[in-house]
Amino acid sequence: MSFRRVLGYYKSRMARLPGTPHSIAAGFAAGAAVSFTPFMGFHFLLGALVAWALRGNLIASALGTLVGNPWTFPFIWLAIYEVGAAIMLDSESRVPLDDLSLSYLWNHIGDVLVPMMLGGAILSVIVWPLFYFPLARGIERFRKMRFERRLRKRSTEVAVTGQAIGQDPA
C-alpha cells in the first residue's frame, strides 16, 4: 500500500472520530506537541493530559503522539537539544555532538536533559498550532462535503422513488 493511500485512510479516520472539529484537532495537536518533549514512554499520558486540559479528543491525542516515531525521533531530539542549548547560551556545557555516546549521555544527563526540556517546551508551543489549525479546517471541510454528499444521495433517492426515505408508501 502506498504512503499516500495510508495517509488518506488515516485522514478520513481522523475526521470520523466522535467530537467537534476543535476537540479532534486539539487532541491530535496535543499529542504531536508532546512528541517534541524528551519524555519517552510518557507521551501517551502527557498527550492525554494536555488534550483533556484543552477539551480535546483523547483518541486523537494518542494518534498525534505517532508524529514521534523511530524515524522522526532522532531529528526531533536533535532539534529540541539544539534549540534549548542555543537559548541557554552556555557553550562550555554544550554536549559535543561528534563525541556523543551512550556512556557520555548517562554521565552527563543534566547537560543533555535540561536543554532538551527547554527546547522541547519551545518547539511544542510552536508545533501545536501548526497541527491544530490545518486539521480543524480540514475536518470541517471533510464533514461539510460528507453532509452535502448525503443530501445529494437522499435527494436522488427521493426523485427516483417519489418518497422520502422512511415514509410509508400509502
Rank of each mutant, 00 (worst) to 15 (best):
G120Q: 14
S61E: 00
P96Y: 04
S124H: 15
R55V: 02
I126R: 10
G120Y: 13
G56P: 00
S93V: 03
H108S: 05
L63S: 03
L118D: 02
G119M: 11
V67I: 13
A86N: 10
I109E: 06
S103L: 06
A86I: 00
S91E: 09
G119F: 09
S103H: 05
A79Y: 12
P115F: 02
V127R: 02
I87Y: 04
R55S: 00
V125E: 06
F131R: 02
L100W: 07
D98T: 08
W128F: 08
A121H: 14
F131E: 08
L97R: 15
V114S: 01
P134Q: 07
G110S: 10
V127G: 06
V67F: 12
T72I: 09
D99C: 01
I59G: 00
N57Q: 01
D98A: 05
Y132H: 13
M117Q: 07
D98I: 04
L130G: 08
A79M: 14
I59C: 00
V67S: 13
F44H: 13
I80N: 09
G84V: 15
E92D: 11
L49R: 14
T72S: 07
W71P: 02
G110C: 04
T72H: 06
L45G: 14
A86G: 15
L100T: 03
P129Y: 07
V112E: 04
L63C: 08
A53V: 02
I126V: 10
P70I: 01
I80T: 12
S124N: 11
L54Q: 08
M116K: 07
S91V: 06
V114G: 00
W106L: 03
A51Q: 03
L49T: 04
V127W: 00
L118T: 08
S91F: 06
T65W: 06
A62E: 02
L45S: 13
L97N: 05
G84P: 11
L130Q: 02
A86M: 10
L78R: 10
W52E: 05
S103I: 08
D111W: 04
L113F: 07
P96A: 01
A85T: 06
I109D: 01
S103F: 04
G84N: 12
F133R: 06
D99E: 15
V67P: 09
G68F: 13
T65I: 08
W128T: 08
L66H: 12
A86R: 07
S61T: 00
F131K: 01
A85C: 09
S101R: 06
V67Y: 08
L46C: 11
F131V: 13
V95C: 01
L113S: 05
S103G: 02
P115S: 06
L102V: 14
L102H: 01
V112I: 09
G47W: 12
F131M: 11
L100E: 03
L66T: 09
S103Y: 04
G56Y: 00
L58Q: 02
G64N: 10
A60H: 04
A79H: 14
V95H: 00
A86C: 01
L100M: 09
N69V: 03
S91C: 02
L45P: 13
W77K: 04
P134W: 03
V112H: 05
F133V: 05
W77M: 15
Y104D: 01
A48T: 11
W77T: 14
S103C: 03
L58M: 10
V125K: 03
A85Y: 03
W128K: 11
L63W: 04
R55P: 01
F133I: 10
P74N: 13
Y104H: 04
Y104N: 00
G120D: 11
D111Y: 03
L78Q: 11
